[in-house]
Design a protein around this nucleic acid. Structure first.
Length: 220
DNA sequence: GGCCAGGTGTAAA
DNA sequence: TTTACACATGGC
């Protein structure tokens, strides 16, 4: 009998297939995307990243050197662009000071160092650690909290560290597994569990309309 | 026109 | 220590 946390992953993977996260051309682009996607749809992040590329601003030195207003204008489609411009500049400085992703990756307390930066919270830090730096940390987002609360596996108000511990204590510490799992949760949430407080047709819920063990889209 | 998006930080109560 | 709000564009 496998753990429910692993069973959910297996069902999601069987249904949706590998998600291929994180979509980016470089490690730095991934980390930029992690900041840009804060409370923002990925399609808007893509627009912002395209603008950055066109402006020659998708590099730490370029972001560090450019005016905050110009950076903000480039990332405008991602929303909260003034905040994010400031955050990108702070992160780019951090990135340069540590000698790039390899320097950051070699920090024993990389997570703590990221969290100490203004504008990088636990989800952004863990997204960077998992997808950009290949550290086996499980990323918790609003979807994860919502879905697993609905499944009755975790308390709805469980704090971030408790949810992270839930997964990390039950799953093998595998970077590919953690990457795929978080991506699958997002893919599933987009399709089924966006609405609150309950998604009656969610195939992961007990007694769902699709019957036991069956995963397919809620749309008829 | 309202709600939501691969959150985070700050300020009231 | 909770709760509320600001940040802000774009899709549905």
């Amino acid at each position: 009998m496998s753990d429910p946390a692993l069973a959910v992953h297996d069902r999601l993977l069987a249904h949706y297939g590998p998600q291929g996260w994180w979509p980016a051309d470089s490690v730095f682009e991934m980390m930029v995307g992690a900041i840009l996607t804060q409370n923002t749809s990925w399609t808007n992040v893509e627009r912002a990243i395209t603008h950055l590329k066109q402006a020659g601003l998708l590099g730490a030195a370029a972001i560090d050197a450019c005016d905050r207003e110009r950076l903000a204008a480039a990332i405008r489609p991602s929303g909260t662009y003034n905040q994010k411009a400031q955050r990108l500049k702070a992160f780019s400085r951090f990135y340069l000071q540590h000698g790039g992703e390899n320097g950051i990756a070699s920090l024993p307390e990389a997570r703590q160092a990221l969290l100490e930066m203004h504008g990088i919270g636990p989800e952004t830090a863990d997204s960077m650690l998992l997808y950009a730096l290949d550290r086996p940390v499980f990323v918790i987002d609003a979807y994860t909290r919502r879905i697993f609360a609905r499944l009755g596996l975790t308390p709805p108000d469980a704090p971030y560290p408790a949810l992270q511990a839930y997964f990390q204590s039950r799953l093998p510490a595998s970077v590919p597994l953690f990457k795929e799992y978080h991506a699958l949760i997002v893919a599933h949430a987009k399709q089924h569990c966006r609405t609150r407080p309950l998604c009656a047709g969610c195939p992961l819920l007990p007694g769902c309309a699709h019957g036991p063990g069956v995963l397919r889209p809620a749309a008829a």
